[in-house]
Design a protein around this nucleic acid. Structure first.
Lengths: 253, 253
DNA sequence: TAGTGGTCTAGACCACAAA
DNA sequence: TTGTGGTCTAGACCACTAA
């Protein structure tokens, strides 16, 4: 399964007529190149003066884009040496929205997906409340089993506001990426999300699906995702095997 | 239990002879004021021009400090209106190192601590490996039960490199803050940490201490903390009750 | 209209790394 | 010595908010 990047049609230099800030355009261009593998891990990316010339930008604007990349851990900067592509870390799972596929690739595993359910349902009360909707609104529900190296890793239950993406369930999400379909077919780009992380006990069904002993501990994430218009579009529940999955992050004093 | 802030002796304007960057000094001054309650939640903090004048700084330097506060969620900025103190969010638990006391206060609960163990032990192999030390080095071990509103919330097991903080266990850490003692008595300031988050099953002893049913799911955090010299000084294991404790954070696309 | 934050520029000096 | 990133400045224009 190949995930197309969000920025396939991205131009390779900044567009001064765009409404997007120049520093953000530069950030997206460089991020795209880094994720595409334009440079090896540890390889130096162009210097600030080079980027200034290539994109005809001031140093402050260039630095703003570079600093964002550094803050997000995609590059590290060394005074007197240069800026270098950082190793892909698992940390991104706690700061950036990444797909299961991307997540497993970073962890060096081969992802696979099985669709368990795919139907239209009236919004349950708890889901409606999380999304700030009226209960009973039509939702597209998609439940998927996610596997890594052919072993079950997690169960994902996704609720999408169907009026925003009518017909979204016609695709086969065992092989297609949901976020790609949302962007390509419905113009919905998920830019922000809030999530809560808990430890829970596996239900009988979950234990069977995940092939773990009954009542095993699971890492449980509930996530509300927001579109570019800042509208809540998806409610997601993910149950990860406690014995296989962990989250990593770094803290500052 | 009163936690003294790290910056009790902080001057109220920037020091141009300090080695610290001016934007960072401004950030720390404002952060200190916000945490001290100088402004109410939702109240507007001084505008950029005011800060420029008060501290005799350029706008770019002021903005750099303000943007860091905004990135860390302490303020939010609104074009045309001003910058405002944000509600203290639980998010900070996933980006900033905060004490149990601070954490519980943010969650509106009253913290209490009981010391379960406090002794010197040779470093176990796994702990030594995580800290990059030779196994068998002398470690101060401190195990504490943390309570919120008088109900058990978590078990914390802390391993400190004893040669960095000899005699550290002489204090009573039921009432004193470990991080305060490290800074005040041993000159160790913990500035950075890496952690891994998992879901595990409670042992019999853990279940008893936390007053949860046997084999309950727990949120388990393993953390390595680094000093201002970037030396690993502490290895920490925290077991949180799965039914009471959750982590919150926000993601970007 | 006045005041706020958002973006962008040109230019300067410094600290650090490598040749 | 050269080139890198780190810090800081003055000044400009824009977009948004509120009166």
């Amino acid at each position: 399964m190949v995930l197309h990047d969000d920025y396939t049609q991205l131009r390779m230099t900044v567009n001064r007529h765009s409404s997007l800030p120049l520093h953000q355009q530069l950030y997206e261009i460089l991020r795209h190149k880094i994720l595409q593998g334009e440079w090896e891990v540890g390889e130096m990316i162009p210097t600030e003066p080079e980027l200034m010339q290539q994109h005809n930008l001031s140093r402050i604007t260039v630095r703003r884009g570079l600093n964002r990349l550094a803050n997000e851990g995609l590059i590290y900067r060394q005074q007197g040496r240069g800026s270098f592509v950082a190793e892909q870390t698992l940390e991104q799972g706690l700061t950036r929205i990444i797909s299961f596929t991307e997540d497993m690739n970073q962890r060096g595993m081969v992802p696979r997906t099985e669709v368990l359910f795919s139907d239209l349902v009236p919004s349950p009360e708890d889901v409606a409340e999380r999304l700030g909707l009226e209960p009973g609104a039509e939702m597209a529900r998609l439940e998927r089993l996610r596997l890594a190296n052919d072993e079950p890793m997690s169960i994902e239950e996704s609720y999408l506001v169907h009026s925003y993406c009518p017909g979204v369930l016609e695709d086969n999400y065992a092989v297609n990426a949901l976020r790609e379909a949302l962007e390509a077919k419905h113009g919905i780009r998920i830019l922000r999300a809030r999530q809560i992380i808990r430890a829970v006990r596996a239900s009988t069904r979950q234990a069977r699906l995940l092939t773990v002993p009954a009542r095993s501990p699971l890492l449980f994430i509930e996530r509300v995702s927001y579109s570019q218009q800042n509208l809540p579009v998806e409610f997601l529940r993910i149950y990860y095997r406690g014995d296989r999955y962990s989250l990593y992050n770094e803290l500052n004093g």
